[in-house]
Design a protein around this nucleic acid. Structure first.
Lengths: 145, 145
DNA sequence: ATGAGTGCAAACCGTTTGCAATCGG
DNA sequence: CCGATTGCAAACGGTTTGCACTCAT
């Protein structure tokens, strides 16, 4: 299920947020890639859609979208933060160590693992966060040469 | 299996690193808690053991220990980084949302899940990182009142 | 019209670097 | 003794804030 621009736009309006030019540019930018992007990357790409897009606005819009629940922050290896649209349902990512390509994993087998954790620790489990790193097929071929 | 000061000290010597006062203080600080600590917290606590401990030294020692493989960085919710001694073997953590208490999970059932991921994506899986959040037994009781 | 949203500049904070002094082996 | 290590101060890069102006509704 891919999130559409209209869906997001409606969520903005429904929650009383204005749909300004800068915000449109940010939404379109995030929709255009499955990879998590850093704020700076979002600004850079977004400026192709709205030239005056400021970095500050990117930060403020990302924060807003996070609280709206339509965006999720992911931790990328080099310490920077990345942001990607939240996919409805539960997903995890596999990130390529070489080219940083990202593949989404739908479906999550962790249920019974988490049950066991709850059992042994006494914790009530409220969430989890899995990030898998690997080498994508393209980079594997490159390496083979 | 708990890592001892002596074990760590020997690893330092074995790899030709000097065991200075500041480093001892940092090791003892990390040994004293199972929770991931931020560099600033490590400095603060470490100064009780060695008053002149500088933040720069904390950073440099953490970096060294990470390359030695005796320390692992964890991503904590508020964007800051935390550091905790690496436990031999593969472990994951469950972090309490309320009190930030941390429990270690030994044993990792993810093998066949990762196999399936490798199969469906074509990626070679090189690593994974799982963080589970929940509410610890103590906080559950508190909440019940 | 009017308050939400914007961009700029400056403040802020965690982290890294250059350097002379110091310490451990 | 001699090089690894340290602490300081300054640089640095990403993020946040204050403020006057602008835009969407």
């Amino acid at each position: 299920m891919t999130t559409s621009f209209e869906t997001l736009a409606q969520q903005f309006r429904a929650q009383g947020h204005k749909l300004t030019q800068p915000r449109r540019a940010i939404l379109r930018t995030l929709l255009a890639t499955p990879k998590p992007l850093s704020p700076a990357e979002i600004q850079e790409r977004g400026q192709k859609l709205y030239g005056d897009l400021g970095l500050v606005t990117v930060y403020r819009t990302l924060e807003l979208m996070e609280t709206m629940g339509v965006l999720r922050a992911v931790h990328v290896a080099d310490g920077c933060h990345g942001y990607a649209l939240a996919t409805p349902g539960h997903t995890h990512h596999v990130v390529c160590e070489r080219c940083h390509d990202v593949v989404e994993i739908v479906g999550c087998d962790l249920g019974h693992f988490l049950d066991r954790v709850a059992e042994t620790t006494g914790y009530t489990i409220t969430g989890h966060w899995l990030e898998i790193s690997g080498i994508c097929p393209a980079c594997q071929r490159q390496q083979a040469r």
